[in-house]
Amino acid sequence: MTRYFTDKLAKYIVFISGFTSFIILLLIALFIFREGLPAFSEIGVFDFIFGGVWRPGIDQYGILAMIVGSIAVTIVSMIMAVPLGIACAILLAEVAPSKIRSILRPAVELLVGIPSVVYGLVGLVLLVPLISNIGGSGFSILTASIVLMVMVLPTIISISEDSIRAVPSSYREGALALGATKWQTIKGVVLPAAKSGIGAGIVLGMGRAIGETMAMIMVIGNSIAFPRFTFRCRAYTDRQHSTGNKLCYRHPRERALCYRCRALYFYITVKQRSYYLP
């Protein structure tokens, strides 16, 4: 009797715990969308998302510049991070002897633990002056992308490495026994077998790239203008409104707008996470 009781109890505890997190998520979503909705009805979705001018003083609320900035930074950083990350994962999983791996792997994992402010600071102090040699102020998409690349690398590397390791060794043996070289084996069999895991790593990395705020604000210039590759621009992320920028909360409508921005970001994040979930 008691055994069944414990069994049931365990089941309910697991259920309640699981649902709690789901309900919290639901409440957050409800709150954000409810607070953001008034602004939608006042300005309209189209003007809001595709409006190029953000000037609350004269009632211009277009966030296109910020969206474009965010997307540009994400794309450029992913272009740099994906090949590097996969190459590093291959090195760690297939090529490096265990001694080198035991040094590299913790180093990569350490990168995850560094607060984004530190990345921002390093970018600000080292990268911005360097890029300003090319032209412009140095606060730019390029700078932000390089910083972001370093930040998303560990995610891509560790998830890709795990999925490469998870490829059964029988695949490798099969390929080698056919007279394939090591690289042919990796390229022709191991990577295709690990591609779903590598894809998940890239998507997760992208999630971090789109959502990153602090480091971005520090190196991208924080001006509301359409981005240029090596010139001043601004990436839009939701937290800018609460932490990085004084725009918010001055005026009820601005506040509503902030929530709406957040709603947008929330939507993007949920969409993105649901992509790689089974």
Binding site: E173, G174, A175, L178, T181
Partner: peptide, 27 residues
Amino acid sequence: KNVGMVFQKPNPFPISIFDNIAFGPKQ
């Protein structure tokens, strides 16, 4: 290439039947 091997557990690659056979010659 000259001395092929068949393993205890069948180990086809997780690709199409055609690509499995074509893998060796391609390499």
